[in-house]
Design a protein around this nucleic acid. Structure first.
Length: 635
RNA sequence: GCCAGCGUAGCUCAGUCGGUAGAGCGACUGAUUCGUAAUCAGUAGGUCGGAGGUUCGAUUCCUCUCGCUGGCUCCA
């Protein structure tokens, strides 16, 4: 059967970057799905898929490989039941019901078996059976999960695919023969619920991937290895950027001096850009009274995501999971006229959200994080210009970090079920139109996702593509038709009457923790000069050069750079090795020659020895690179 | 939260078929004063994640628990 993996929802307010653990669901394969379906020999059907457009050849290949996996498993482990086995973004999986868990060794045995079935080059046949007959067939095979699936399916006939002894209830399409499957690998085994129901049966899911050619498979495996090497949790320790601690609690981050330095630079940059961009910056507390969260609706709809209340003088106070109610209180602290609007209020607001222990992951999924949040309050007339402004602002800021290849998604409400949404039809129509207009004005390609909007308003999400082609959701721009009404927000219009303002939530980086994690992986720890916590390592060759090294350090620091002299009594090679390992962008070496000439010898990370440099020229060069937020070091 | 796996020195890991542990790197001390990715020697450092049980004896076996990893689930 064909199974469309539900796209991960982009729920929640800006910033938590809610996605699969570690964004693993997120990364799409960077390899193009290039070979056209007609070039492949298909099983005897070419059945058109229901709804979702023509079959993708790579998907068919993977789906057939999933069948191959099930075939092998059922032969190797009699009594096992097969669940579902679709193609997914980077490969495929198949779910099985079996008492004994699959081990890593089992995976290689299964792969071996799969290869043997491939070698037999079995014909893959499509069967169309009356429903009763199919049910009888799978009952006879002891495949009661399949029976359940068939029973649920409408219609009098069902399609099945057979290869040798193995039959699967499936819509197809499939390749013509198992011999066409050659380049696959089983990757992992994990738990999964039958039909995704937490209270239901727990199945074992085997993940794998498959490609048309050996090279593509190898490239993909190299990519996995590359991703593993640049894992932010590994680099976080190696570069001494941050840590977590068992006695601190899961999902809480300790920022070490170097990580904190990077964060402070980002925050400083962020504030300056916001002030220059027509925003004001706010600070609000970490907790608030129960009544506030009742008014906002969070206690009705978001309680599960909030920490338990603390009793203060007999009143319940809650840690904030979001910043918006606080910003609204500031809005409501005085009368607002249409002449005051738009108001653009930004805050680096630290929020706390309860996340189930199993989903926590390094910096990417945490329980305490700081959102680069903002709320824009405007009149209906201003909405379109504001959206465009936010869109430009977002792409400009992401661009400064080197994210220039973005994927944009427009999430709108489900037209078939408009009753579950807050706000009037008119508001939805207007808001959506302003989002579309802004996207069109900039010629941005985007994907329209019907029914993906959260209940309180439509939104635009921006996913950035990192250096190895993975997508990460960062920016979200969301209309909110809910809270202004709940809080009774208003402004006095030119007509002297009160009107409800439009409210737009937006986060650009999402959460600083998560964004930092993404940056570490994107740069592979090689932070560009403007972000590098230590920009220049200064290495004296012998003790008699220490004073000169300290002078160099002092000069650079006073020039606004971030230098660090290494005065340990180690050999030069040792100190170079360490500075390179720590990915310090620039290394200055000072020995007798340099002391005499008042210069230094420059080494650039990843580029090696650059020879003697003039100090003033170096400082000027570094400043230019910092100014331009250059991603490379040309000195 | 659920399924599976893993927790041994700061880090990476070895080891004990039950008799309380070892390496490399790092740290520290000393010697070396050195020219573009690891100088040499020595020292310290672990109630083997935590609690309980079985046992003469547990880091090893069992139970619970905490944390981490891969997924699932959740994400008004």
């Amino acid at each position: 059967m064909r199974f469309v993996r539900p796209s991960p929802r982009g729920g929640g307010w800006p910033g938590s970057g809610r996605r699969g653990k570690g964004g693993r669901l997120q990364p799409r394969t960077p390899f193009p799905r290039f070979f056209p379906p007609e070039e492949m020999s298909m099983a005897n059907d070419n059945a058109k898929h229901t709804g979702a457009g023509p079959a993708d050849a790579l998907e068919t290949l993977r789906h057939s490989t999933a069948h191959l996996l099930a075939h092998a498993v059922l032969e190797l482990f009699p009594g096992t039941q097969a669940g579902i086995g679709p193609a997914v973004d980077n490969g495929f999986f198949y779910d099985f019901l079996r008492d004994t868990p699959f081990s890593t060794e089992d995976l290689s045995a299964i792969e071996e078996k799969m290869r043997r079935i491939v070698a037999l080059d079995m014909r893959i046949e499509k069967l169309t059976l009356p429903k009763d007959e199919a049910i009888g067939l799978f009952q006879g095979l002891g495949q009661t999960l399949k029976v359940e699936l068939i029973r649920e399916k409408g219609g009098d006939f069902v399609t099945c695919y057979r290869q040798g002894e193995f039959v699967d209830f499936c819509l197809g399409p499939h390749l013509a023969s198992t011999g066409a499957l050659a380049h696959f690998k089983l990757l992992s085994v994990s738990g999964a619920y039958w039909k995704g129901d937490e209270r239901g049966l727990q199945l074992q899911r085997i993940y794998g991937t498959a490609f048309p050619t050996r090279k593509e498979l190898d490239d993909y495996l190299v990519l996995i290895e590359e991703a593993r090497k640049r894992d932010h949790r590994r680099l976080g320790v190696e570069l001494d950027l941050y840590s977590t601690a068992e006695e601190l609690g899961g999902g809480l981050i300790l920022w070490h001096p170097k990580g904190a330095r990077i964060r402070a630079i980002i925050e400083q940059y962020w504030r300056e850009r916001h002030w220059a961009g027509g925003y004001d910056v706010l600070y609000t507390p970490h907790l608030g009274r129960e009544i506030l969260w009742q008014t906002s609706g969070h206690l009705d709809f978001y309680k599960d995501g909030m920490y338990s209340p603390m009793d203060i003088d007999g009143q319940n106070y809650y840690l904030k999971p979001m910043n918006c109610p606080f910003h609204i209180l500031i809005y409501k602290s005085r009368m607002r006229s249409y002449r005051d609007l738009p108001l653009r209020w930004a805050e680096l607001g630290t929020v706390y959200r309860y996340e189930r222990s199993g989903v926590l992951h390094g910096l990417l999924r945490v329980r305490g994080f700081t959102q680069d949040d903002a709320h824009i309050f405007c009149t209906p007339d201003q909405m379109e210009a504001e959206i465009l402004r936010v869109l430009d602002f977002s792409t400009s800021i992401l661009g400064d970090f080197g994210f220039t290849d973005n994927k944009i998604e427009l999430s709108v409400r489900d037209p078939k079920n408009t009753s579950k949404y807050a706000g009037s039809d008119e508001m939805w129509t207007e808001a959506e139109a302003s989002l579309v207009k802004a996207l069109d004005a900039r010629g941005f390609a985007y994907e329209r996702m019907e029914g993906e909007a959260v209940f309180y308003g439509p939104k635009i999400d921006i996913k950035v593509k990192d250096a190895i082609g993975r997508l990460w959701q960062c920016t979200t721009i969301q209309f909110d038709f809910n809270e202004p009404a709940r809080f009774g927000m208003s402004y006095i219009g030119p007509d002297g009457q009160g009107h409800q303002p439009y409210m737009i939530h937006r986060a650009l980086m999402g959460s600083l923790e998560r964004f930092f994690g993404i940056l570490i992986e994107h740069y592979n720890g090689n932070f560009p000069l403007w972000l590098a916590p230590v920009q220049v390592a200064i290495l004296p060759i012998a003790e008699r050069h220490d004073d000169y090294a300290k002078t160099l350090e002092d000069t650079l620091r006073r020039a606004g750079l971030r230098p660090l002299a290494d005065l340990r009594r180690e050999k030069l090679n040792y100190k170079i090795r360490e500075a390179e390992r720590l990915k310090v962008p620039l290394i200055l070496i000072a020995g007798d020659k340099e002391v005499a000439a008042g210069t230094a010898s420059l080494r650039v990370h990843g580029q090696g020895d650059k020879g003697t440099v003039d100090l003033a020229a170096l400082i000027a060069g570094v400043k230019t690179l910092v100014e331009n937020k250059s991603l490379t070091v040309n000195l």
